[in-house]
Amino acid sequence: MTRALLFPEGLASEPLILTRAMASAEAFGREHQLQRLAYEHPDVIPIEEIDPGAGAVAPLCRELTLRGQTGPVFLDMLGVTRRGRLVLVECKLWRNPQARREVIGQVLEYAGLMRRLSYGDLSALVATRIGRQASNLLWELARDRLSLTDEAAFVDAVSDSLSAGAFDLVVLGDGIRSEIEAVRGFLEAAAGLRSRLALVEVAAWTNPSGQILLTPQIALRTKVIEQQALPYTASPLPTVAAAPVSRDMPREALAPSAAPTASANRQFWDHFIAKAKFSHPDQPPPSHGGNNWVRLALPSASMTLYREKGPQGPSSRCGMFLRLRGEAGRAAYDTLCAELPDIEAETGMRIGASWKDDVDSGTMSVDALVSTDEEAQLAWLAQTSDRLVSAFRPRLSALG
């Protein structure tokens, strides 16, 4: 079935006098224009023909950053249906020679990377991309657009979509039909992926007034591959060491404190644990470690939060760090270092990173001189740990 969508709205006088000559080039001079069209007008995606019963697509974000083996990759658009099935959209102008084969491999790669994420990981990535925080961001983005009422069922459905690799994969282009045979080999490589793949051709027509009529049409659609996908298991990373170490401080200054008192330190961290709130919905609360430090559990790793044993004039040093060890730890460290500019931009802070070959160990750390007022220390620790968790947790989840 072919549908026609007016873009922009308001085709007035001459609906039958249309021409396709050069219309695609005029409508979509660059791929980001097609991407924007899909995000702002998701009805251009014929989702009912791809996934009967899906109803509509609620756009979640554009250019979602995913962590590939060789660095970050960017999904053009992410959406979700009312049944909680995620929709991964990649936009290509087919006059681009590289698009003819690579796009299918790309969208399948994105599906594989998405399977590694939890609901909370995905929420954190979307929040970072659109610059918005909410207690359940994905739900808020989809609720009104799709007229949803059951938040728990939505969260469960999206979580199932992620864990099973059950996505609607859509390649949106301006001239797909001539390339169908060239991509069939890529589809064979998707065995075990429980996703639908659709190639959607968006033909653009113009009338004498210059208005554009779009006719999205499915050029190829696969059935769901029914084989159950193998579960993803992240490679273990060494846990963080108990003794805190900072890049700028002498080791003895960070030894577990005996002052002011162990009971006072315990009371301070009890207060922190009770008050700490994290934007990432998967993050559990901190737990006590030793005297004057606590631990935050992260995927296959942990982060240590500490404060120095005594004041330095009007200030006292507080900090937190992630330690990585061994071969797996070095691989994780190198990946995180490659993304350090992005992490620092997301968190708004400088992050120290160092690796010592003699002990086969490295750290990623943040510390600062904070007022000796305990409320100021608690506020700094809460804000800084929340930002670091939101940045590191999705990346650690993706490391395999």
Rank of each mutant, 00 (worst) to 15 (best):
R3V: 10
A4Y: 14
L11I: 09
E14I: 03
P15E: 08
T19C: 04
A21E: 13
E26F: 13
F28Y: 15
G29I: 07
E31D: 14
H32S: 13
Q33L: 15
Y39G: 03
P42Y: 04
P46N: 05
P46D: 05
I47Q: 02
E48W: 07
E49D: 12
I50G: 02
G53F: 10
G55E: 06
L60W: 04
L60E: 07
G68K: 07
Q69L: 13
T70W: 15
L75P: 01
T81W: 03
T81M: 00
G84P: 01
L88F: 04
E90W: 03
L93D: 12
R95G: 09
N96R: 10
A99E: 08
E102W: 02
V107G: 02
L108V: 10
E109K: 06
Y110L: 06
A111R: 06
R115V: 04
R116V: 03
R116S: 08
L117A: 02
L117Q: 03
Y119T: 03
L122T: 08
T128V: 03
N136K: 05
L137T: 04
W139N: 01
W139R: 03
E140C: 00
L141D: 02
D144P: 00
S147P: 00
T149W: 04
D150C: 08
A153E: 10
A157R: 06
S163Q: 09
D168I: 05
V171S: 02
G173N: 07
G175E: 13
R184W: 09
A190K: 01
G192N: 06
V200K: 00
E201L: 00
V202H: 01
V202N: 02
A203S: 11
Q211V: 03
T215P: 01
Q217D: 15
A219W: 13
T222K: 11
K223A: 15
V224I: 15
Q228V: 12
P231I: 07
L237V: 06
P238E: 14
V240W: 10
A242H: 12
A242V: 11
V245N: 08
D248H: 11
M249A: 15
P250F: 14
L254Y: 07
P256W: 13
A264T: 13
F268G: 04
F272L: 13
I273L: 07
K275R: 15
K277L: 08
F278V: 03
P281V: 03
W293Y: 15
P299D: 09
P299G: 08
S300P: 00
S302T: 06
S302Q: 08
Q312K: 09
P314T: 10
R317Q: 06
G319S: 07
F321M: 05
L322H: 04
L324D: 05
A328R: 13
L336N: 02
C337Y: 08
I343H: 01
E344L: 02
A345D: 08
T347M: 03
G348H: 07
R350M: 06
I351W: 11
G352Y: 10
G352A: 14
A353D: 09
S354C: 02
W355P: 00
W355C: 01
D357K: 07
D357I: 04
T363W: 13
S365P: 00
A368V: 07
V370G: 03
D373H: 11
E375G: 12
E375H: 11
E375C: 07
A382D: 13
L388S: 05
L388Y: 04
V389L: 12
V389Q: 11
S390M: 15
P394Q: 11
A398H: 08
